[in-house]
Design a binder for these strands. Structure first.
Lengths: 148, 148
DNA sequence: AATCAAAATGAGATCCATTTTTATTTTCTT
DNA sequence: AAGAAAATAAAAATGGATCTCATTTTGATT
């Protein structure tokens, strides 16, 4: 489980961006720092809300652009959290990562991890004629609170 | 692997709809039959294109409505195929189902199935404090053709 | 068969997350 | 300090999905 306010990840991400040839930029840095503050998936809109009121304000397009670049470098993971809106969360450098159970009623997201699942996916990725770089598992149903 | 043009599924679905209290309706039936013709995920837009030119034409809203009802009853599975667009495909009554590897370059979708993966997910679904009804696994990467 | 309330439908308007455009500012090299 | 390339913000555009509402169809009840 990732720690809250993971500034180690922020440094890691900024370093990786630099190394990938990106120049430094205030908006992108702000997005990285905002992501570091969240311990589970955030939507672009939520990030935009957080960062719009800053001085200087960060534009919506910059948020999306930064998220895309971060995803490209494998620094964040993108997933659909509700119909039509994506959530983003940081990927720990160690490689360990979690997936999510999402409640179809209230939208609550419960993270989980499972080595067996990861192993099955890893094996599978080798077998198919496809260069797999990423995977995403979502369980859907009802959370404790919403279950009848 | 589901057979092409699965009319058994269509009958199954129409029966289930009836049983769920829905009256019969031309648009919904047309959507069911269209889904039965496809052996892998189709987008709502694609279905709309197919059905719009029919006599009588099926409206876009009816396509989305039907898909939502079918999904609710567990008759079709919804998944994100590309950023911001969902794909739908029929769920076989037997319970066997497949997942997809999706190419980030060309969007090509390669279905696969894996009992080990299913088993890992089934076990997991028991363990977490969540009433899991559904799951979705997506592998992303480059397909044979697009791999450098 | 006729009636009627409820359900289903289609066309278009609308919503909303995301992307594109464009003019401006910032970064970094020379 | 100068200039080319990259980054940015604001606004407009895009596009999938949803909503509205007037009309048609369905199926239970006469």
């Amino acid at each position: 489980m990732p720690a809250r306010a993971d500034s180690a990840w922020a440094e890691h991400a900024l370093r990786a961006l630099r190394q990938a040839g990106y120049r430094r930029g205030g908006a992108r840095t702000a997005v990285v720092e905002a992501l570091a503050r969240h311990d589970c998936a955030v939507t672009a809109i939520e990030l935009d809300d957080e960062l719009r009121r800053r001085r200087p304000a960060v534009g919506r397009a910059s948020v999306y652009r930064a998220l895309e670049q971060l995803e490209q470098l494998g620094l964040v993971q993108r997933m659909e959290v509700t119909r039509g809106t994506a959530g983003y969360e940081r990927v720990e450098p160690g490689g360990e990562h979690h997936h999510h159970a999402i409640c179809r009623k209230c939208g609550r997201m419960v993270p989980f991890e499972d080595p067996k699942l990861e192993r099955a996916i890893a094996r599978l990725s080798e077998e198919i004629s496809f260069e797999v770089t990423d995977h995403d598992v979502v369980l859907r149903g009802l959370c404790e609170r919403c279950a009848d």
